[in-house]
Amino acid sequence: MSELDNADESNPEANAEFDAQFGALLANPTMWDSPGDDLSDRVVSAISSESVNAAATYAAPSGSHGRRSWVRPALLGAAAAIAFLFGGLVLLSGLSGVEDVDSFSAELVPTGRTDGQSGAITVTLFDSGLRIELDAASLPRRDNGSFYAGWLTTVDGDLFPVGTFHDGVKVTLWAGVELERVEMFTITLEAAAGRGNEGQGSSGEVVLRTEINP
């Protein structure tokens, strides 16, 4: 039993004992800091997005068996529709004589910083680099010094800017980076840095993201 258990509140020895044991731990401000209020929504949003997008873009999570009965048929239906659409596009592409190039698409996952955003990118490989066609019409337009920026993150942690834009309608971005090094595409919300600042860096305010799994 510690001295604190028997002491009243004015006992300096008990207080000193407590401070000696736990004072340093409690004095660490990090122990008291809490995540942002919106993190709960972002966690749920990320999980919801992954469960919906799993069949279309990624492998299903290992813990997905036994999930609600309507999810699997819905995902299978979506996958079938996408496969049918993709097959049609390939057929049309072949008939029209379009050059056969390597490309793939990926669904963008909202981070929860803004409500109800979604989108997709189509990445096409060229000798000159990667062309990224963005379709994210649900992104609200940003003007007057506010804008969006696209970024590719590599496995080495390098960040490549791929372009800026006001909204997500018919946006084409380019990147001079090897596809095999890329692991993430993100869209951030930016504000102009202003004159006198040393270049425009990422704000870190990611609104949409996707892993790149060619």
Binding site: L39, R42, V43, I47, P61, G63
Partner: peptide, 13 residues
């Protein structure tokens, strides 16, 4: 933190 809860959901079984 977000990643941890996503992982927890993925590996809940």
């Amino acid at each position: 933190t977000q990643h941890v809860f996503l992982q927890a959901w993925r590996n809940a079984d």
